[in-house]
Design a protein around this nucleic acid. Sequence first.
DNA 1: CGCCGTATTGAGCGCTCTCAAGCTAGGTGG
DNA 2: CCACCTAGCTTGAGAGCGCTCAATACGGCG
Lengths: 230, 230
Amino acid sequence: MANMTQDNTCYDYCSFMPFCADEKTQQARLPVKRQFHLKKKEALDLPKNKFQNLYAIQNGALKTYHIEADGKELIRGFYFSGEILGYEAIYAGQYCFSAIALTDTIVCEISYDSFIALTQSKPALQKHAMYLISKELNTGSYLASVTAEQRFAAFLLDLTVRLHPLKPQINFDIPMTRQDIGNYLGLTPETISRMMTRLQKKNIITIHHKKIQITQLEALKKIASGIELT
Amino acid sequence: MANMTQDNTCYDYCSFMPFCADEKTQQARLPVKRQFHLKKKEALDLPKNKFQNLYAIQNGALKTYHIEADGKELIRGFYFSGEILGYEAIYAGQYCFSAIALTDTIVCEISYDSFIALTQSKPALQKHAMYLISKELNTGSYLASVTAEQRFAAFLLDLTVRLHPLKPQINFDIPMTRQDIGNYLGLTPETISRMMTRLQKKNIITIHHKKIQITQLEALKKIASGIELT
DNA sequence: CGCCGTATTGAGCGCTCTCAAGCTAGGTGG
DNA sequence: CCACCTAGCTTGAGAGCGCTCAATACGGCG
């Protein structure tokens, strides 16, 4: 059962659970090949030059990135508890990115072939698979927003939902650095810092280091959607 | 056979062909519900509030967009011959965007349920389906590029491949307006125009209105990847 | 306690936007 | 067939947002 760690700590939610456990029998259906317990800043060991596994983040947070021709790191995305990493690699047939844990993280390795075989047997599971990958097509749509404030506000809203899939939280720890946020949003860490101060001065959020509280959720949504309050 | 129009004009390629015709028997497998012959600027009729079809662009070009809270149009993507529109809507259960033809375009409407049923029967087809949707996850990755010149160069390279899937072309007609390109890349039409003149002055491309020729492909790739030549 | 990665804040610059004016091409109607 | 008309494109000048560079402060970890 993928949402149960080896030390029997039970986590609430994994989008991959329908593939791992039968609703009635609670029997495992999709075997977890390996389970990684990554420390903060530890890299996820992805096979070179061949795609063969999907990775379910059971608990924690990861970033994926790759190094550009000019040597700069480019962050492609963040993955949190219950999310699946690896769909992008199906097309290329290999993982054209690296992944690093942002906090201590538990990851389940799942064979893509067994995954396909399992969805073959159950139409409902295949629909769920399509649902999950379609969901990923919709992530990061706010990267198209124009201003830095808009993009950053949308990013915070994204975190409220994705860090706690079962119940959105307005109080949480930001797991990544200002640099990572900036890289992902196409901004500099200085700009992220300035946006934090600006939103705090507007009494929309409260920030202490990694801890953030959203005090005016609706105002934040308005900023994210481009409706500025003067 | 989905890559054959009603007037018997045969087009070279459609990524959905494996679903429509059996390689050996050439028999139709996935029925095309409706075929739309859209004139330039004509909207594709998408069902409201329910997702139930995928749309294969048999020939032509479309843009998808949606209207932001502040009333502005935001272009989400372009779709060309052989590409499939609709995967993003699986997640939300509805089409949260509109689609408009950029040129005269032929579109095949395919039932999502029959599509799922067909992939159930053939593992190879399901893998192909996953391959196609994974491909879409990788589109537009260059939107993260920093400078306007980089993004525009990458956009041109994208067009060389996607406008002619069988054989990349360095001579082609740009099907969309400067405004559409700018909107998609997060730039203004003026900036697009300026980038065109700049690349032309560098003797990397030649542009006359909609007609473009890429005269130095490698130089364009270098610009797209951030390696500037001084 | 001291170190180093991370974060904040400020000053000045540059890329892209905004606004505006002219230009081009294609379509329409007389 | 031509004059007009309009949407789209080009080009220029000035403004502003976010970047660069730099100095300082903070905090986790040994």
